[in-house]
Write a protein that binds this DNA or RNA. Structure first.
Lengths: 145, 145
DNA sequence: CTATGTGCAAATCTTTTGCAGGCTA
DNA sequence: TAGCCTGCAAAAGATTTGCACATAG
């Protein structure tokens, strides 16, 4: 599943530090903790502010919810993460910044990656005149049987 | 554009009445007004609770915002409309209930239909085991040049 | 040292809900 | 008449913000 976060060991922390440095984001204690949880084990991860906040708390790191929001927004602005819109009531954030399709599990409200290459377009419209395509979001909604 | 609503004339009202009757939705005054604005001119329409509320107000019909929300939800449950998720902060509703791709104009936050047949998939994944695909949402985000 | 980040609580915004009264079938 | 609908105001969530304090470069 998606919500098992890596322990905050040295490997995770140095990976996080490189991740922040690469994007010129100032490495504060809170940002390093959150970044470790996000990229510490090298896997792509999908979080909401709430799930990341809870993960930080249970890993023993004290970070306020407001800071989690600010940090996620900062990571997005720095190009480290992407905001994915699948649910009108919650924002999801993805550590993979490439444009790729997602599965959204309707029962657990979980967001995961669709297998790579799972979707391809045989046709994409020319953008209407005066506009360019900034992104194409594909969300495959799944119902558990 | 999308926000020019039809006048509430007799044609629009009777079209609205048929639309509600067809789905067994009780035709109250408020629902008829809102339905006229939505389907009165036969065009597909994309609204938020807010835009529909304002349209009702400026057409001279008094409908409370809470009722607009309740009504949109009732129309969705009756299968008359679909909720489209494009923006984490707002819900959009579409009078076209078929699964079709949308344009989302990032500058004005407007939602419109992508030209029909604009997108087709050359490949769709088999759903993961134990799940079935309930819907595939495609949103083409546009940046105005 | 200075700019930037953090934490808390309060504010904001969208959407939902409780309840008293109104209206459709 | 009975049950569903409406409107208001208040509640509920998610997210943002103001401000005093802390910290990275």
């Amino acid at each position: 599943m998606d919500q098992e976060f890596a322990p905050l060991d040295d490997t995770a922390l140095s990976k996080a530090a490189r991740w922040l440095a690469h994007a010129n984001v100032r490495p504060t204690r809170q940002r390093l903790s959150l970044a470790s949880l996000l990229v510490g084990d090298g896997q792509d991860r999908h979080v909401t502010a709430e799930t990341l906040f809870l993960a930080a708390k249970s890993s023993g790191e004290a970070v306020s919810l407001a800071t989690v929001y600010n940090t996620l927004r900062a990571f997005c602005e720095a190009g480290l993460m992407n905001e994915i819109t699948v649910d009108a009531t919650r924002s999801y954030f993805d550590t993979c910044v490439e444009d790729h399709p997602h599965y959204f599990w309707e029962d657990t409200q979980e967001l995961t990656d669709a297998p790579s290459g799972a979707v391809s377009f045989s046709r994409l419209p020319d953008p209407p005149q005066g506009a360019e395509i900034s992104r194409v979001d594909v969300v495959i909604r799944l119902r558990r049987l």
